[in-house]
């Protein structure tokens, strides 16, 4: 009897906590969508009901912002950064794990130390470098410094530990060269690792803020994150328009997450083995 009550209480507690956390996690999304349908003043006044300003806000957003161009800029930067990061990081993760040597092991540890470098310490020198290279206000300048990421290399190396060595041995018997083994065996086998890394790197690149803010000078090169920030810090921000912007900016990352959720969790599994 007491046991039954205890069990019911613990179930209540468990589901109560889960429900509360889930609600708190999702509520800002709901509020953001509702906000897109309300006027600026209603939003600041905390209105949580759907309003009648959706079409007005959307219209204003599309007249104030060259949306197709802005989204194209964001997509271009995010995809380019993701593909390049995945390519060089998986090469390195594979290289560090398969071809171990004392020097490389040392370099690997030194490389992990770069995780500690705050971006704030890099921005002025990086900006001067980009200026000298004539790359200011280009998307290349946004992408280049983000490709070499110790974190993603670390992730790929961790996952490579699960790569079956028999596959490599068999391939070598078949006479495949090292780059062929990597390209035709490792890459397909590690699909889910790539998928998970894709999600993480894509989201980071899509949401990147400070560096694009510094490098991109004209409205023609701006990304959606920059646009939201400047809409929100404008002289007279219209929160309805800002909400439309945040909804539109969040949709792509949300879509990537939902379409690749399974691979994502599988990939995560690999990273902590």
């Amino acid at each position: 009897m007491t046991n039954g009550i205890g069990r019911a209480a613990s179930a209540l507690l468990t589901y109560g906590l889960l429900g509360l956390m889930a609600f708190l996690s999702v509520f800002p999304f709901l509020w953001m969508v509702l906000g897109a349908t309300n006027s600026s003043i209603d939003i600041i006044k905390g209105r949580v009901l759907p309003g009648e300003f959706l079409s007005t806000n959307v219209d204003k957003f599309f007249t104030q912002v060259n949306a197709p161009l802005v989204f194209w800029n964001s997509a271009k930067i995010a995809i380019l950064a993701t593909v390049l990061t995945l390519a060089v990081s998986s090469l390195a993760g594979y290289g560090f794990e398969i071809f171990r040597s004392r020097h490389r092991e040392r370099l690997y540890r030194a490389m992990l130390l770069t995780l500690m470098i705050p971006f704030a310490a890099l921005m002025i020198p990086l900006f001067i470098m980009m200026g000298k290279a004539g790359l200011i206000n280009t998307h290349i300048a946004v992408v280049l410094p983000t490709i070499g990421s110790a974190f993603v290399v670390f992730y790929f190396r961790q996952c490579t530990k699960a790569f079956p060595s028999e596959l490599r041995d068999a391939a070598k018997v078949d006479g495949l060269k090292e780059w062929q083994i990597f390209l035709f065996i490792y890459v397909p086998v590690m699909r889910s690792t790539y998928a998970a890394a894709f999600i993480i790197v894509f989201m980071t690149a899509w949401n990147n803020y400070l560096w694009p803010l510094i490098v991109l000078q004209s409205n023609e090169t701006k990304t959606i994150t920059l646009v939201i920030s400047s809409l929100a810090s404008a002289y007279y921000p219209d929160y309805g328009v800002v909400m439309v912007g945040t909804v539109l900016a969040t949709l792509p990352t949300l879509a990537v997450f939902f379409f690749m959720q399974r691979q994502f969790v599988q990939g995560m599994l690999g990273s902590v083995k």
Partner: peptide
């Protein structure tokens, strides 16, 4: 101004 790159 800090970077000394005029084209920016």
């Amino acid at each position: 101004l800090a970077s000394g790159t005029a084209d920016a």
